[in-house]
Simulated scan of single mutants.
Amino acid sequence: MTDLQRVNITKQHPAAYKALTALSSEVQEAAAAVGLDPLLVELLKIRASQINGCAFCLRMHTRDALKKGETPTGSPYCPDGKRPATSPRPTAPPSA
């Protein structure tokens, strides 16, 4: 396989993908239990995908973040990982 070929992790490594999705579900539940914003969790997944260099995961989590309210000018698209000053995302205070 060359560097330009894509890996279909669901077909080539189904057991690993199943384990990753199970871990992701546990993380989602734990994050929700402590009141973390689901979009923040998705942005963390995007950053991990950037660090790991996984295009498959980066694409998947970017799509999920857009569905959860992220904008195309938000951090997944910024090379330095910082949100542009002209596009702040309002945050609600954590519920007590």
Rank of each mutant, 00 (worst) to 15 (best):
L39S: 01
S25N: 10
T10N: 04
A85V: 14
A31P: 03
H13W: 04
A92F: 13
R63K: 14
T62D: 02
A22H: 09
I46F: 05
V34A: 00
A48I: 10
P88S: 04
T21G: 01
N8G: 00
C54N: 10
Y77N: 02
F56G: 01
G81W: 07
P76Q: 01
K45R: 13
K67F: 06
L36I: 12
V41A: 04
L58W: 12
H61R: 02
P88M: 05
R83A: 06
R63M: 11
H61A: 05
S75P: 14
T2N: 10
K68T: 02
E29F: 05
F56R: 04
A65R: 02
L36A: 01
A30V: 04
N8I: 12
R83P: 03
G35L: 11
K18T: 08
A92L: 14
G53F: 06
P94R: 13
A33M: 07
G81S: 01
R59D: 10
L4C: 02
A48E: 14
Y77R: 05
P84N: 04
Y17S: 03
K45A: 14
E42H: 07
H13Y: 15
A22Y: 06
A16S: 13
D64Y: 13
K68F: 11
Y77D: 00
N8R: 14
A19R: 08
L23I: 06
M1Y: 09
G69Q: 07
I9D: 02
S25I: 01
A30M: 11
V34I: 15
